[in-house]
């Protein structure tokens, strides 16, 4: 039987062998950042010959490629099983994969469920909690009949007066608002900090509920281009997956009728995302684009806040921030500067 080995792809000769194998299976020309984001890579060997490979990045399976085997599927199952067992041993029982439509069936046979299907790609998940379990586990997110429920997905890196304005607009026009804070922890402000600032800055709004978006809303699984520099084709594809996931699962199960987004004059990626949401969500879910809040002549953006922190010019951004965010930044200024110095990007999102 074929044998699993760890592949140390930092070693140039092993990396070369691995990339050649992937290229032989049609996997090539991916952004270097995607390889750098990988946690573990395994190789499957039959008599010292590489016959399969697979990798994990967080709880996402990546770079899966196998030779044809007898019986068919044996190599594939062995790789997927090994990666799942390793993630389970590390306490991660929920696994996702974004793959080409021709591999959908193979993943079905090993217990994966399709979340979104498009012509170019498929998003699938296995294990537990499932998307249904995640959504049903959100307390207070179950709507009542006749209620107008809205949702906002935000990274809030960090929460500004602009975010507050967007939430207020939604809260005024709806019976209830669900805010989903991006779970992926790749921003200057950590996920815990971002969540905390959204919660404290909206605590006075009785009809607003705040949750983490889990693996499903602008996550590293649905929309990696939000976190990695990517070209427009990739952004278009990933935002379509993200939008359909929201439309067909989140909005459907939680009875959300409207999604609010901030108008996006500055970030290219987010601008495409807004366009795709407007194309994909209706008629099931309405999209309301709210013009950006201005303080004086400045459009309020979190990007500005981060760059002011990097340049040690806090006084410039005080007017853009609610009191609680301002206080938080003052207290944690040194720590935030250290993160930027250590290489945390402040551009992008």
């Amino acid at each position: 039987m074929a044998e699993i080995r760890d592949l140390m792809i930092k070693v140039p000769s092993i990396r070369h062998q691995w990339l050649t194998f992937l290229a032989g299976h049609g996997l090539q020309d991916f952004p270097p950042a995607e390889v750098a984001g990988v946690d573990h890579v395994v190789g499957l060997y039959e008599n010292d010959r590489l016959v399969g490979t697979g990798a994990t990045a967080g709880n996402i399976l990546k770079f899966i490629a196998v030779d044809a085997s007898t019986p068919p599927g044996a190599y594939f199952n062995q790789i997927v099983s090994e990666l799942q067992s390793r993630l389970a041993a590390a306490g991660q029982l929920h696994v996702m994969v974004s793959t080409k439509p021709q591999y959908e069936k193979s993943f079905h046979y090993v217990g994966f469920q399709t979340l979104v299907h498009t012509h170019w790609g498929v998003l699938m998940e296995a294990g537990t909690p499932t998307i249904t379990q995640y959504l049903q586990g959100l307390s207070g997110a179950t709507g009542t009949i006749g209620e107008h429920r809205s949702a906002i997905v935000m990274n809030a890196n960090p929460f500004t007066k602009g975010h507050r304005y967007l939430v207020e607009q939604a809260a005024m026009q709806s019976d209830a608002v669900d805010i989903f804070v991006v779970s992926t922890d790749r921003s200057l402000f950590t996920t815990a900090e971002r969540l905390h600032l959204v919660q404290t800055n909206t605590a006075d709004l009785a009809n607003v509920h705040v949750y983490l978006g889990g693996d499903y809303m602008v996550s590293y699984a649905t929309f990696p281009a939000y976190f990695l520099a990517s070209n427009d084709t990739i952004i278009n594809y990933q935002t379509t997956i993200d939008a359909r996931l929201f439309r067909d699962w989140v909005a459907k199960i939680l009875h959300i009728q409207t999604r609010y987004v901030g108008e996006e004059p500055l970030s290219h990626t987010t601008a495409i995302y807004n366009q795709v949401l407007q194309k994909e969500l209706p008629p099931q879910v309405q999209v309301k684009v709210i013009p950006r809040l201005k303080v004086g002549r400045t459009i309020v953006t979190a990007t500005q806040v981060r760059s002011a922190i990097a340049q040690n010019k806090l006084s410039e951004i005080r007017s853009l921030l609610p009191a609680k965010t301002w206080k938080f930044i003052q207290i944690h200024q040194t720590e935030l500067e250290t993160r930027i110095k250590k290489g945390m990007t402040i551009r992008g999102n």
């Binding site: 199952n77 062995q78 099983s81 090994e82 799942q84 029982l93 090993v110 217990g111 909690p129 379990q133």
Partner: peptide, 19 residues
């Protein structure tokens, strides 16, 4: 807590339990 045992190889079964 949730737990997993078994593999997806021929003649085996993969069992995942969750609360």
């Amino acid at each position: 807590k949730a737990a997993l045992a078994g593999t997806l190889e021929s003649s085996d079964i993969q069992i995942t339990l969750s609360p």
